[in-house]
């Protein structure tokens, strides 16, 4: 699950071994070239060549308040989903790391089962739960907490809830690994040094778990930026997200130029975020040994 950290580690050891093994990587590089680099370059070319050569598509994209609003929606929802996933995921990962392994494996099984369940089925399930006459609204009304059903679906609230649910395992799994690797004796030492429980958490546990938080958060944020199914089903037509917009350009409007431009902007943004994360947390900056 910690694809990000694994790739950086692999990259480092590759560098350490020198360049003698290049030939062995050729098939993999060829595969990447044919199935990844060529299509992306093709998309980039279409975005600057169709309907006519030039940066017209990008000008339209950044010039229109409608499109900018979609970008804004996408970033906002992704940021909120990431924040919620970390806030909810951290305690769960912590619990998984310290609870007896028999119980941990039960929680683990629940997590994995939910991940293996069909995405559409899960998203429709949230639709049923969140709708005006759904279980959540009914319960809240029966408890007398609200008079009118809350609008939880067909808007960004619904998208956020649905996506947070789907993204949680991607935070919990890498974070659990990082927290499990922290020696409990370090926390005991902190406690004997006079740190309260809260200080142990904020000054020792969270800083030590930060690389795991960063890895999980990056994955969730990047996945959220390009997510399609959940926003399409739980979101409203008024608040579109980026992936929906690209789908519309390509499928309904058959405008490959605009679709390509939007996809390319998304790719550049993603790479920038990955670069920042590498800068901050890459290559064992915290000096935690292995």
């Amino acid at each position: 699950m910690s694809a990000v950290t694994e790739t950086t580690a692999a990259g480092n050891s590759e560098r350490a071994r020198g360049t003698s093994g290049w030939a062995y990587a050729l098939p993999a590089l060829l595969l990447l070239l044919i199935f990844f680099v060529v299509p992306v370059v093709g998309l980039l070319l279409r975005s600057v060549l169709e309907p006519e050569p030039g940066l017209g598509n990008y000008a339209t994209l950044f010039g229109s308040s409608t499109y900018l609003r979609i970008f804004l929606n996408t970033f906002m929802v992704s940021a909120v989903v990431t924040a919620l996933s970390v806030v909810i995921g951290f305690p769960v990962a912590w619990m998984l790391a310290i609870m007896p392994s028999r119980w941990a494996s039960v929680v683990f099984a629940i997590l994995l089962l939910s991940m293996w369940t069909n995405l559409l089925a899960r998203t429709y399930a949230w639709m049923v739960l969140l709708q005006r006459t759904g279980v959540i609204n009914k319960t809240l009304m029966n408890l007398g907490l609200i008079d009118q059903p809350l609008a939880l679906v067909n808007n960004l609230v619904g998208v956020t809830i649905g996506m947070t649910y789907i993204m949680l395992p991607f935070v919990i799994l890498p974070l659990r690994g990082v927290i499990k690797a922290i020696d409990p004796a370090i926390l005991q030492a902190a406690s004997l040094c006079g740190a309260t429980r809260w200080q142990c958490l904020t000054r020792v546990l969270i800083p030590l778990a930060l690389p795991g938080v960063a890895a999980g958060a990056l994955m969730v944020f990047v996945m959220s930026l390009g997510y399609f199914v959940t926003p399409a089903l739980l979101g409203g037509t008024a608040n579109m997200m980026l992936a929906e917009m690209i789908a519309q350009f390509v499928q309904s409007l058959v405008n490959w130029g605009m679709g390509g431009a939007a996809a390319f902007v998304l790719l550049v943004v993603t790479l920038c975020i990955y670069g920042i994360q590498l800068r901050l947390f890459g290559a064992g900056r915290l000096g935690q040994g292995a």
């Binding site: 370090i186 005991q188 406690s191 004997l192 800083p207 030590l208 930060l210 000096g287």
Partner: peptide
């Protein structure tokens, strides 16, 4: 008295310096 209020020093068998 909980451990953090005992004001007792301790050195452990394992290395317990805060790595960060």
């Amino acid at each position: 008295t909980p451990p953090h209020k005992r004001n007792i020093g301790m050195v452990f068998q394992r290395y317990t310096l805060f790595p960060h």
